[in-house]
Nucleic acid binder design. Structure first.
Lengths: 101, 101
DNA sequence: TCGGAATTTCGGGAAATATCGATATGTTTG
DNA sequence: CAAACATATCGATATTTCCCGAAATTCCGA
């Protein structure tokens, strides 16, 4: 967990929002878009794309950036990729920030 | 306190370090450079510049960036500007991060 | 197997950031 | 006042980030 990489990832409103949306998907995505959410897979790229209002490619870039620094994790199921928060990593990060600053 | 501005400010190793150095100046600066530290003024720009190994202008830029987003505060005394952490703001920030993520 | 959907990857132009040296401003001291 | 400092600001260039569209990949269903 590279602290600087994490801060870079969080230096963007959309990426911050994605993390917040994924904290409570039911609050932020229409119910019919969350069919596989109960299986704890997360939310798929196209739903996040819609919500973010950006192009699919940008959204995909953002998601893989968040994944690279460990904040979220991906599960591929057929043609969909579901992303969810990596709560353990986020907790670790919070502790790290707490200690460092 | 703009969260994004804070994350941008922290997306740089030197700026992170400055915050950490200022947490415990005695640990990070030679004693003879901390003559006014006991007055709770902070550490002056040239000492931080030396420690950072960057140009004075860059260091000054960094400090005013950190100041703009509220993480540190400045006190001008004669020709010197002393910077110290804004512990209240940093605490607020930690709580904000805790809540948001 | 073919067409289409979801996603990723790639290349690029515009905008923002990093970092410097030069310059400007304000301060102290002779 | 002039010289010497400490710091801040400005202008320039190199690098990075933002965000897109096009193309590639993977998977599914007819």
């Amino acid at each position: 967990m590279e602290l600087i990489m994490v801060f870079k990832a969080l230096s963007n409103e959309t990426r911050i929002n994605i993390l917040i949306w994924l904290k409570e998907p039911r609050l932020h995505f229409p119910a019919e878009e969350l069919q596989d959410y109960d299986a704890n897979l997360g939310v798929c790229v196209s739903d996040i794309t819609k919500k973010a209002g950006l192009s699919p490619s940008t959204t995909s870039d953002y998601l893989s950036l968040l994944q690279k620094c460990g904040l979220i994790e991906a599960t591929r199921v057929g043609q969909w990729t579901y992303y969810k928060r990596n709560e353990g990593a986020i907790e670790t990060l919070n502790n790290l920030i707490q200690k460092a600053f």
